[in-house]
Amino acid sequence: MNSTKFGRVLLNTITVLLCLVYLFPIYLILTNSFKSRAQMYENMISLPKSLSLQYYASALEKMNFFTSVKNSLILTVVSILVIVIFSSMTAWMFARSKNRLSTALFNLLVATMLIPFQTIMMPLMQEMNWIGNTFGIKMTDSVPGLIFMYLGFGAGMGVFLYHGFVTGIPVSLEEAATIDGCNTWKTFWSIVFPMLKPTTMTVIILDVIWIWNDYLLPSLTLKSTGNRTIPISTAKFFGQYTISWNEAMAALVVTIIPVVIFYLICQKYIVEGVAAGAVKG
C-alpha cells in the first residue's frame, strides 16, 4: 500500500521535473537576463546572485517595446475583429443559400488554404504597391493595409470553420425570426451570430496565435520604425546591435510575457480552440 503510494508520488515528481527540463531554454534566458556579464559567462545555469534590472531597461528602450506592443495589439485585435465579422456573415450566407456560386466560392476559399504565403508574397507586394500608386491608397507600410491583407488571408480558415458550424444548426429559429418581421441583417446579428460563439472563440484563438507571431508578411510591408510589431522589432534588435546577450535575453523575456499572460488567462479556450481548429482544418 505504502510502496504504491510512494511510487505514485515519485512518478508525479519525475513528470514535473521532466517538464521543467523541457522548458530549460526559458529558464536560461530568464536567469541570465538578471546577471552581469561576468557572472553570466562564469556559470550560465546558476541562479542570479542579485536581481539587476539594468538590461531590461536598455532592452525595452532599444526595442521600443511599448510602441511595438501597442502596434501588435492594434493589428491583432482589429484584424481579428474584421475576420470574425466578415467571415461569419459570408459563411452563414453560403450555408443558407445553396446555389452554385456559394459552393464554388466556398470550395475556392478552402482550396486556397493550401497555397503557401511564399508563393504569393512577391506578386502581392507588387499589387499593393500598384494600388498605392494608382488609387493613392497607402497599402504598404500602413497598418490598415496590413489589416486588409490579414482579412484576405484569414478568410479561408474563418469561413471554413463558421460554415461547418452553421450547417449543424437548425434553420427554424431564423425562419421564425423572419416571420416575426426581422430582416436578414437583424436575423443574422441578433439570432445567428450569438449561437456561433464556440466557433468565434476558435477563430479568435487561432488568429491571435497566427497574427501576433507573424513575421514574414509584416516584415515585407511595415518599413517605418513607428509601425514595427513585436516580431519585427525583435528581429531588428538581433540584427542591428552587436548583441549583448544579457540584454538580448532580457528582450526575449519581455517579448514572451504577453504570450504567457494570454495563455494563463485563456488556457481552456486556447487548448479547445487549437484542437478544434486542427481537427476541422
Binding site: 476559399l109 507588387q126 486588409f148 491583407m149 482579412l151 488571408f153 479561408g156
Partner: peptide, 15 residues
Amino acid sequence: LMLVFFCVVVIPFFI
C-alpha cells in the same frame, strides 16, 4: 470578404 479575398489571395496567385 470575397473582394478582399480575391484581391489578396486569388489575383496575386495568378499574377
